[in-house]
């Protein structure tokens, strides 16, 4: 406790004569276009693959993606009907992770993944397929954050494939996380 007391005392002493600055509000900037369309465009600009489609077609898409794979790993909150018919593998062995996003943010091209789903499923397989409902796509990050009622132990915002330019300034995908991110918005 001693360090705490000393740090806080020093902070108070430092601030004694300092004028107090006001906390500004963040303005909302309304989108000029459909949030789903903007989300798809931004995700593609970020290097992800993105599409919008009815649920039936989404199931068929997942099945096509799963063709020839030995198995996959699934998020805990992924609805059963969206699971491609594959054996479930441990996330560290699975070539594909399929998960269900809490929400998406159009302006940044992001999907939000909750730890209630698991964590390895979002990070370990080289390919990550994420489903999100069109009604859960927010225009702005501000709207999304203000609307969150409760926070999971960890919330991940994923906006594209894992990448790095640390080796000679050349962009490389799939350094630690998935090198391929596919987002399907369910209409």
């Amino acid at each position: 406790m001693e360090a705490r007391t000393r740090i806080l005392a020093r902070v108070r002493r430092a601030l004694k004569e300092r004028p107090k600055a006001l906390l500004p509000e963040h303005p909302h900037t309304p989108l000029a276009e459909d949030p789903v369309d903007l989300l798809l465009r931004r995700l593609e600009e970020n290097g992800a693959e993105a599409m919008k489609l009815p649920r039936e077609e989404a199931k068929a898409f997942a099945q096509r993606l799963a063709e020839g794979l030995p198995g996959a790993t699934f998020g805990k909150t992924l609805p059963q009907d969206l699971r491609p018919p594959l054996p479930e593998l441990p996330p560290e062995e699975a070539p594909l992770g399929v998960s269900w996003a809490l929400f998406a943010v159009a302006e940044t091209g992001s999907v939000a993944l909750s730890s209630e789903e698991g964590r390895r499923v979002h990070l370990l397989p080289p390919t990550h397929l994420v489903f999100v409902e069109a009604g859960r796509v927010y225009g702005s990050l501000l709207e999304a954050l203000q609307d969150l009622q409760s926070l999971p132990s960890a919330l991940g915002l994923h906006s594209g494939p894992s990448k790095s330019a640390d080796i000679g300034q050349v962009m490389v995908k799939g350094v630690h996380g998935p090198g391929r991110l596919i987002v399907a918005v369910l209409l």
């Binding site: 992001s110 926070l151 999971p152 132990s153 919330l155 991940g156 915002l157 994923h158 906006s159 894992s162």
Partner: peptide, 21 residues
Amino acid sequence: GQRLATFVSLIQGPAREGEEG
């Protein structure tokens, strides 16, 4: 120059009952 970092972690605390983490 990105709109957002590719991965953002918002960490609230240790894993809850039945969660990995």
